[in-house]
Amino acid sequence: MSSPRTIRFTLNGEPVSATIMPHETLVDVLQHRFDLRGARESCGQGLCGCCTVHVDGKPVSGCLFLAVFADGARVDTVEGLARGDALDPVQEAFIEAGAFQCGFCTPGFVMMVKQLLKEHPEPTDEEVRHYLTGNLCRCSAYPEILDAVKLASARQAEAARRA
């Protein structure tokens, strides 16, 4: 009954395929088949956001997302953000604001903030708090994360003005 199946999807812009079992989650497949470590399982219940990846442009919890459902989708991970040595503005803002300590939750936060700034280019504190409330940072660099979001938003606005 349970048998492997080949799925094809776009991973950080590249077409890929993988032969997987039905029970494998997206985060299993990214870690074990593609050696991508940025999305990682922590709470296992979709509450902490450490496993955040984008599927068809929307953040999802990779630990609750069966990989078969990524068949035909566009999957983007934190590894796809930087262009060569140039980090994404959100990543740069996290570094400048000192918005992390142990770093385990950081890729998940970065991926959420990417989407947050797409939906709310200049978010209020209230919007940021609600948008990111499903991401847990036990080191609790939360004040710095708020700073990082504002910094990234300001940079983005400035870049838009100049463009």
């Binding site: 979709g46 956001g49 929307k58 953040p59 959420m112 609600h130 409330t133 499903g134």
Partner: peptide, 12 residues
Amino acid sequence: MKTLANVRVRNV
């Protein structure tokens, strides 16, 4: 929706 689960759950 504002306080329902989180963005990722709401997306799925």
